[in-house]
Amino acid sequence: MTLRVRLPFSASCLLAALACFPHFGRAQESPYIVTYDHYLEEPGNLEVEYFSTFGTQRGGNNFHAFWTELEYGATAWWTTELYLDGQTTFQESTIFTGLRFENRIRPLKHEHFVNPILYVEYERKNGADKILKEVEGHDVESDFLVPNAAARKDHINELEFKLILSSTVKGWNFAENIIASKNLSNQPWEFGYALGASRPLALKASAKRCSFCRENFVAGVEMYGGLGDRYSFGLNNTSHYVAPVVAWNLPSGWTLRLSPSFGLNDNSHAFLLRWGVSREITGFGSAMNRLFRGRS
């Protein structure tokens, strides 16, 4: 099998964005790739993220799906995000598969034992989308067997809602996402879930700045899958995954994530390897403000 490696469009966006803004923050990022916790982007900061998913495909060609996220903290209670998605199916083609615009809103002022976040997303994608950012309805591995040339002709407009519930107890974070999505072309509501648990390897910070200190590593596990649709709700005839996750928050401002995912039933891809790199740009909002209003 010949693998064609191409620089994805989204990676180019990432590099361009990082080159434009020299002020980088040093965030403490969670290791989750699918699950959301209740922590929003800091106000005025832009986080530029690039993620890849290599997936195995039974009865077809393996694929490499990738996406760029531009995540902006509009306020301390509102984060807004733009996704650009693409994929390469080996021995077929590399294509742009769509975009997503999401908003996460924190309705409560204070921290509680369980913290809710409301999530609303608009997706405009085509049928060749393979990023597997969530599993909904009766999503199964064989959906990905349709060749890119045919799948890309199917246009999907979708609204997605999530209730994110998240708690942090003694250094552990526990997050539960309940997903409901609606294809706007007269399809039934579909449902899904994502669960995550993670903890930094050390809870105290070191007195010296260091790259390999244990507190810079956050490890955990996430599990996600579909819950059917409004006519056939449940765990059957859909796919489910479990995935160990690890994040490395470097003092230089970069965060690296790695997550091998394993399918839990015959409807799931047997193996997905996900990785991601992100960097936070502090003061992005102020820079835009100066640019458009001409004052500091």
Binding site: Q28, E42, A76, R106, E111, G171, A205, E215
Partner: peptide, 11 residues
């Protein structure tokens, strides 16, 4: 001012 409970208690 954002929530900083993502930093563990000792931090």
């Amino acid at each position: 001012m954002p929530v900083w409970s993502k930093l563990p208690e000792p931090q």
